[in-house]
Every structure is written in structure tokens, then in C-alpha cells.
């Protein structure tokens, strides 16, 4: 590169930067974006695929839940719980509740579950600690839970829910959440933030080294 070219380039740089500043448009957000541009789902997108996805999610949820019931190893239980949580998050996506779905993933799967596994690691002496349960207890619990499940299912399937369904349901947007949390739900929102503070202090107090 010749010296003159270098000089010209050096002179051009501040000029170009200044020019780009001069022409930088004011940040104007498009307020009238369509729903798909905003990334909001509607129930019209569904169809056969939605049904298939639902059955897949429900299958994973229930299979992992059943595996938790049967498993004796606590870490495996936590991993099955991860499967349940992820499948439930997918179900929230199917229910057009995107925000709840991602919050489920980030808080439950990314936070609570790790806390649980951490708790397991800190509180078990041998890696495969097992806690035996009497067979009679298992049978009794199974009968009680089966009766309870039958009762609840009977109610759920036979009840007439007063639903006001529209043809096309538009998914929730973040704006709704923001305004909801700061208007209608301000008191529970504040209460829960105070509760979180209390829990933080309490957990730190209880888990501290003497």
C-alpha cells in the first residue's frame, strides 16, 4: 500500500464516521407490525400437527412422571423430572402461552432442578443412596392415588365447562404481561417480590456454616 493511499484512507475514516452519524435515523419502532412479525402465535396455525405434538408432549410428560414414581435412584428421578418439565413447557407453547413456557424452562429447568440436583449431591453419603419403602405402603398409596385419579378424571371428563371460545385465538403478548403485572396484579406482584426477598434471606440464614 502506498503512502498516499494510506493518508487518504486515514482522512476518510473520520469523515465517514461523521457522515454516518449525521445520517443516522432516529430509532423509530414500527408500531403496526403484524402478529407474525411480532412472533405471536394464533390458534389458526394448528391442525393435525398440533394434535400430534400434543400427544407427544402428553406422552413424554406422563411417561417421565410414571418413571419418577417407579424410580428408586434420586438423581434419575431428577432427570425424569427434567423430562416432565420440558414437556410441560412445550405444552404451554401449544397453549399459546409462550412466555409461561420459557419461564418454565428458565426457572424450573434451569434453576429449580439444578438446585434439586445440587441438594442431592450435598446430602447423600454414597452415590447410589436408596431409601427402601415397604411394599404394603406402596400398595396402599397406589390404591389411594388410583381412587383419587379416578374421581378427578370422572369430574374432569364429565363436567360442563362454561367456555367462551372464539374461532381464532390470539396468543398472549409481552405487552399484556407488562401492563397486567403493573396494574391489575400489582399487589400480588409486590407481595411475591417481598416473599422472594424473605426466602433469600431465610435460605441463606438456614444454610450458613455455623
Amino acid at each position: 500500500m502506498t503512502l498516499r493511499l494510506k493518508k487518504i484512507l486515514l482522512l476518510m475514516t473520520p469523515l465517514a464516521i461523521a457522515l454516518s452519524f449525521a445520517t443516522a435515523p432516529v430509532q423509530a419502532a414500527d408500531t403496526d407490525l403484524s402478529l407474525s412479525d411480532q412472533g405471536i402465535q394464533t390458534s389458526a396455525d394448528g391442525g393435525l400437527l398440533e394434535a400430534l405434538m400434543f400427544y407427544a408432549c402428553a406422552g413424554v410428560t406422563l411417561a417421565c412422571g410414571f418413571a419418577i414414581c417407579l424410580s428408586k435412584n434420586i438423581v434419575r428421578m431428577a432427570v425424569y423430572l427434567f423430562g416432565t418439565l420440558a414437556a410441560v413447557a412445550l405444552m404451554y407453547f401449544l397453549l399459546l402461552a409462550n412466555f409461561i413456557g420459557v419461564i418454565q424452562l428458565i426457572v424450573y429447568a434451569g434453576g429449580t432442578l439444578i438446585l434439586l440436583i445440587f441438594g442431592v449431591m450435598l446430602t447423600s453419603k454414597s452415590p447410589w443412596a436408596k431409601f427402601e419403602v415397604k411394599r404394603s405402603e406402596l400398595i396402599a398409596a397406589g390404591i389411594v392415588c388410583a381412587l383419587f385419579a379416578g374421581m378427578l378424571l370422572f369430574v374432569v371428563v364429565n363436567a360442563e365447562w362454561p367456555l367462551e371460545t372464539d374461532a381464532v385465538v390470539v396468543g398472549s403478548s409481552m405487552t399484556q404481561f407488562g401492563t397486567g403485572l403493573l396494574t391489575d396484579y400489582l399487589v400480588p406482584f409486590e407481595a411475591i417480590s417481598v416473599l422472594l426477598l424473605v426466602v433469600m434471606i431465610g435460605a441463606a440464614y438456614m444454610a450458613r456454616q455455623e
Partner: peptide
């Protein structure tokens, strides 16, 4: 997929 909660999804 242009999702309205893409950022939190990626962090999650």
C-alpha cells in the same frame, strides 16, 4: 421461528 420471547428462550 420468529418468536416474541426469543431472547428468554435462548437464555433458557
Amino acid at each position: 421461528r420468529n418468536v416474541d420471547v426469543a431472547l428468554i428462550f435462548i437464555i433458557a
